[in-house]
Amino acid sequence: MKTVVITGASTGIGAAAALYLAKHGWCVFAGVRKQADADALSARSEGDIRPLILDVTKQDQVDAAVETVSEFLKGQTLTGLVNNAGIANMGPLAIQPLDEFKAHFEVNVFGLLRASQAFAPLLGMDEARTGAPGRIINITSVGGRVSAPFLGAYTATKHAVEAMTDSLRRELVIFGIDAIAIGPGSVKTPIWDKAEEANSDGPYSGSAWSEALEKFEQVMLKGGRDGLPPEQIAKVIEIALDDATPRARYAPVPNKLTNWYIPNLLPKRMLDGVFWKRFGLSKPDK
C-alpha cells in the first residue's frame, strides 16, 4: 500500500492532493487544524483518507501524528510526506510588523522542517523499517525563485524552502530518501483571498505604497481566481511521489513563457522595471 502524509490539507492544494491520491489508491493521512475540516474532507473522499489534527507549528501535534502513522505502518516505511502547509500576507517589508514576518517562517519554514525531521525515520531513516525509502515533497512557489514586491515575507520563506529541499536531497541520499520541490504559479486556492481578508482593514492604507499595493492585490486575486485548478497540482504531486526517475523540481505554471521562463532569464534590474511599471512604482522626482 502507498501511504502519504499531507500537511495543510484543509483547503486548496492540500485538500485537492488528499482527495486525488485517495481516489487513486493511496492511503492518505491528511493534516488539518480543525475537526470540522477533518469531517468535511472525509465526507468528500472517494478513497482512504485518515484526517489528522496537525498544526505544524505545534510539536505535540506533530509527535502525535507521527505516532498514529507509525502504528498504522507496522514497521513499513512511509511512501511520502507532502509539506504543503503555508500562509501568505501581503505588505511592504519596510513597515510590515516583525511578528507577522516571523509567523510566515514559523509555518512555512520551521513547520516544514519540524514535520520533515519528525517523519524522516518513517520515510526510511530508521533502517529497521522494511520497504522502499520514501520521498519528501515540498510545495514551494514561483516566489521561491522570483521575489515580487509586497510578498517579501512569503517569498523569503519559499526561497528558504527551495534551498532546504536541495540540502535535504543531498543529505538524505545515504538513506535513499529523495526530496523534491514543486513550485506552482497561480493556483485557484483560497490563500490570496485569506491574504485580502487580512488586509481588509487597510493596515497600509496610509502608507506611501497604498496605491501600488491595491493594484498588486487585484493582480494576485485575479491570478488566484484564473490560475491552475489545484487538481492539476495534485497530479504533479503524484508524479513526484511515484515516478521512477523524478525531477528535482517541478514548475506547474500557467502561461509558462511569460510567468516563468522570461522572469528567470531577465537581468534583475530589468525585472525591477517590469514590476515598477506594472504596479505604478517609481523613483521620486528630484
Results as ranks from 00 to 15, higher is better:
I262Y: 08
R33Y: 05
P92W: 01
D201E: 15
G152P: 00
I237C: 01
L172Q: 04
T3A: 07
N264H: 15
L54M: 04
L265I: 06
F279N: 00
Q76P: 00
S70W: 09
G223T: 04
R114E: 04
M1V: 10
T245R: 14
A64M: 11
I174G: 09
F150P: 05
T165H: 06
D39Y: 02
L213V: 04
I233D: 11
N255V: 12
D285P: 03
P203Q: 08
P229H: 07
A198L: 13
P51M: 12
K58E: 14
D39L: 12
L241S: 12
S210A: 13
A9V: 02
A15L: 14
P263Y: 12
F275E: 07
D178V: 12
I182S: 09
K222I: 11
A240V: 00
F105H: 08
A212E: 06
A17Y: 01
K215L: 01
E127V: 10
K58L: 07
K2C: 12
A160P: 02
A156R: 08
R114Q: 10
A43M: 08
A128K: 15
Q96H: 11
A64T: 04
K283E: 10
T7F: 05
Y204T: 13
G185F: 03
L123H: 08
A65M: 07
G91V: 05
A16C: 10
L172M: 15
H159P: 03
I6R: 03
F150C: 02
P133Q: 10
A64G: 09
V62Q: 12
V142L: 14
A15Y: 09
T258N: 11
R169S: 09
K2I: 14
P246T: 09
H104W: 14
T130L: 13
Q35R: 12
K277E: 09
T3V: 10
D285K: 15
F175P: 03
T258L: 13
A234N: 14
L54F: 13
V66D: 03
F175C: 06
A212Q: 09
L122R: 07
D201K: 15
